[in-house]
Design a protein around this nucleic acid. Sequence first.
DNA 1: CTATTGCGCAAGCAATTGCTTTCCTATTTA
DNA 2: TAAATAGGAAAGCAATTGCTTGCGCAATAG
Lengths: 121, 121
Amino acid sequence: MEARRDVFQAIADPTRRAIIGMVAKQPVNVNAIAEQFDHTRQAISLHLKILSECGLLNIRKEGRERYCEVKLEKLNEVYEWVEEYHKLWTGRMKSLKRFIEQEELQAAKRTPAKKGKAGRK
Amino acid sequence: MEARRDVFQAIADPTRRAIIGMVAKQPVNVNAIAEQFDHTRQAISLHLKILSECGLLNIRKEGRERYCEVKLEKLNEVYEWVEEYHKLWTGRMKSLKRFIEQEELQAAKRTPAKKGKAGRK
DNA sequence: CTATTGCGCAAGCAATTGCTTTCCTATTTA
DNA sequence: TAAATAGGAAAGCAATTGCTTGCGCAATAG
């Protein structure tokens, strides 16, 4: 029932990413968010719940309204994950990667059992 | 049937993130990947398919083996998305910190009895 | 050639998602 | 006080996920 509730899963949904984008600028109340989308208020409400359950959203009650504000720091997990690979794929570590691949190739060639894919006739 | 196949959704699954981590170092063949996990080969195979369908993985046939290598550049979409917010929250934290410090100072001035660190006596 | 190995395909299944509709409860406002 | 208004809770449903089992097929080893 209570499913996985992590940030990666939370941002997997485009609607939720859009909500984050909306709320990042300033706190917005639930109905105002819902109006921007082509879903019922309840559908959006559910997305908000998911976002808040994984710590990305803070819902502050104010009178009969609920103001949502993002806790962007929660995205740090994602940032750190992707940033590591970003370093890898942008220059810096590229030479290392090439080196490793080269090594692999050499190892494959060294393996005697690997005598040419052309095979026999 | 053919569902959403985007990078955000692909990395939402922890197993798939682990696969990316494994393959980032060097190309690995399917069975070698599958051995690292507590799922059947077919389950992993399916994850690989998803990863390759959204462009994160390149599967190169070599004899009867399939070597998987990541195309990390595909993570750029995620990187750019999260990086924007990263800037925002690191910036915001700075200004928020300034704001709080300012507030604290003001409060200390207003309340002479406050035992705050400002130590105004 | 035959057995083995690497791996994909397909069917089947339970759990999860994303959404809707209906109903309910507070807080305002007239 | 009654009528709006903001928004949550629950039930129902189709589509999707993640996984397994079973089968088939090509490449290679013996």
